[in-house]
Write a protein that binds this DNA or RNA. Sequence first.
DNA 1: AATGCGGGAATGAACATTCATTCCGACCGG
DNA 2: CCGGTCGGAATGAATGTTCATTCCCGCATT
Lengths: 190, 190
Amino acid sequence: MNPEKRADIMQATLELIAEHGFHGAPMSLIAERAGVGAGTIYRYFASKDVLINELFLELDEKIKAQILKGYSTARPIRERFLHLSCGLFGYFVEFPLHFRYVEQFHNSPYGAARRRSKILGEAGQDDVFKSLFADGLQQRAMKELPVLSLCSLAFGPMFSAIRDHILGFIELTPSLIAQLAEACWDGVKR
Amino acid sequence: MNPEKRADIMQATLELIAEHGFHGAPMSLIAERAGVGAGTIYRYFASKDVLINELFLELDEKIKAQILKGYSTARPIRERFLHLSCGLFGYFVEFPLHFRYVEQFHNSPYGAARRRSKILGEAGQDDVFKSLFADGLQQRAMKELPVLSLCSLAFGPMFSAIRDHILGFIELTPSLIAQLAEACWDGVKR
DNA sequence: AATGCGGGAATGAACATTCATTCCGACCGG
DNA sequence: CCGGTCGGAATGAATGTTCATTCCCGCATT
């Protein structure tokens, strides 16, 4: 079992699916780009489904780890909100392929079941976003709306903007990111 | 040429793709649900691609027609904004299948080219949304951001909320819709 | 050191399945 | 009968998966 080869396969899958969608990523192409034989993939992953799901989980972990860096629930609500928003913006601008992949994943049979859990978590109790909005409600800092609706107000614009950025229609500079995060805050704040 | 049969085929396509995605809508199933033979579809549509695209165009027209009802560019910016927002909300709550279809379409090779044109228009000159935001900027009623970013702020939350509604996680009552539209306005207003 | 051996890893051609599309015979109104 | 419409089995291309075979490398024997 060669962990490097496993990583190659995952990278090839990420690139192909992010760039060309699930339709454009047959196993034969993945194998070719990874520089392995078609059968080899099945030594590392039981099926294409498993491969796709494991890749998603890996990305999910990386994203979570990244945005939680320097995050403290002790800070004021607004600061916490901006920290997470800018963190996500930054991550996806740095790794556009990850964004495209996660997006594809969610709009597919694979992610259908997992759809519920938006971009991140809500997986059980430890969802940073849910608890941020719950705290915000409790402190009367945010509009009195269902938590999920607050999520929509906060992240809907973000994903839309990131799409535009990746497709080249706008350029997400740090300054624009800050402005957008502020605008989202205007949307959710009381 | 039986126009009724043509409509049946389109309706079957709409339902299957909206409910199960493109993967879950082979021509054989479409034919079965429409109550016609597989070959018959090709008497009405040159190919599956054509069928899918024509269905999209038809929905696009219906949506446009619906939200422009009672719309006047002479009204104040805020009112125009709320009119369009609530119109879209209302339409998609009434026709969830249309929402799901349009969404699937945009996240697929079919809609990739057309991606640029968001949910509606920007097709050429007559895009109501673009001109709304342009007017808003000119009147200094909205934040000084790229028009596309204003679109993101306005419609990102909406689509996210509609998804949640269709998936059954929240219920989009008229009252909640109004609140969300207001919140979106808070996001874009100066 | 050279040789032979064992076994896990890798391979890619072959297979089974799925799907869009085609084609030809059945059917029906006139 | 006959023109045109319809139906659904047949077709061929594409794709996920399997499996018999090859390859590679570490180790034991001489």
